[in-house]
């Protein structure tokens, strides 16, 4: 391919590829020019051909219009159907959420009925054992005096001000070790199998996301709890964090704290022994 000469006569360094040139330059169908050239050679068209030309034109333009109209119609029809699908899916989600809510409400109503029936039967014997075990298993809401610990990450958004799940585990273990009788993290009551994990930037307590600033409530004798909590490793670590990285770490004694019940254990494989235990 010979290099086209630039305006100054020097060969151009980067000749345009022929394909791009033809796409960008020949926007008009070459057929028109050829037809015009043929007409120019054979003189003006006779009247009969002229009429046929009009027929072609009207039919062709009618076809073009039909295509445009049908396409507009089809697009207008399919857009609402996509919207309908979306709305239907949203409705399904809302319905499922409402069902969850109503089932949870029903479960707590039934729970209350069970408890009142138990109370009617009297507070001695096996039922006393049941409620004691329920309390020990964190299955009943509790209240009492205790410590409230508020933890928040540093505001500056730097990596050094981030509180990790391992830190919180240490802190909560410190509270248990200091004699706390019931602990909740971010409003989620801890039970025997509770976990504190991290998923990305979020902290999950028993797979429930909790939000910063994190409130940790521990029920127990406030002064005794405080004294032994101060000497735990978790407290020392957070005190150091607070002074080094400027995170928030407040410990206050409260005379009245309430904690919700933890969800019951999901026993899928374990079954109770039938005789005696």
């Amino acid at each position: 391919m010979p290099e086209p000469a630039g305006p100054s006569g020097a060969p151009r360094r980067n000749p345009r590829p022929a394909l791009l040139t033809s796409i960008l330059g020949d926007t008009l169908d070459p057929g028109y020019a050829e037809a015009a050239a043929r007409r120019g050679m054979s003189g003006p068209p006779p009247a009969r051909r002229h009429l046929a030309g009009w027929g072609y034109l009207v039919l062709g333009v009618l076809a073009v219009g039909l295509v445009l109209g049908i396409a507009a119609r089809a697009t207008a029809q399919s857009a609402p159907s996509a919207e309908r699908t979306r709305a239907a899916l949203l409705g399904d989600v809302h319905g499922a959420q409402q069902r969850i809510d109503s089932l949870e409400a029903r479960a707590s109503v039934l729970d209350d009925q069970v408890r009142s029936a138990q109370a009617k039967l009297g507070a001695t014997g096996p039922l006393a054992t049941v409620s004691a075990l329920e309390r020990a298993g964190a299955m009943l809401p509790v209240q009492g005096p205790g410590l409230r610990v508020v933890v928040d990450m540093a505001d500056d958004g730097s990596d050094s001000g981030v509180v990790l799940d391992a830190d919180l585990q240490l802190l909560v273990n410190g509270l248990w070790a200091s004699g706390a009788e019931a602990v909740s993290v971010g409003g989620v009551r801890l039970r025997g199998t509770s976990t504190i994990r991290q998923a990305g930037g979020a902290i999950l307590v028993d797979n429930t996301p909790v939000f910063w600033p994190l409130t940790i409530d521990a029920i127990g004798d406030p002064s005794a709890l405080h004294v032994s909590f101060v000497s735990t490793e978790g407290f020392g670590r957070f005190a150091a964090f607070a002074s080094l990285y400027d995170i928030r770490f407040d410990v206050t004694a409260r005379t009245h704290l309430t904690e919700p019940a933890a969800p019951g254990p999901d026993l899928r494989f374990a079954t109770a022994l039938t005789s005696g235990g």
Binding site: G31, Y32, A33, A35, G53, W54, Y56, L57, L59, G60
Partner: peptide, 8 residues
Amino acid sequence: IFDAKVFV
């Protein structure tokens, strides 16, 4: 240079 046949 319009030509109906070419167009259609």
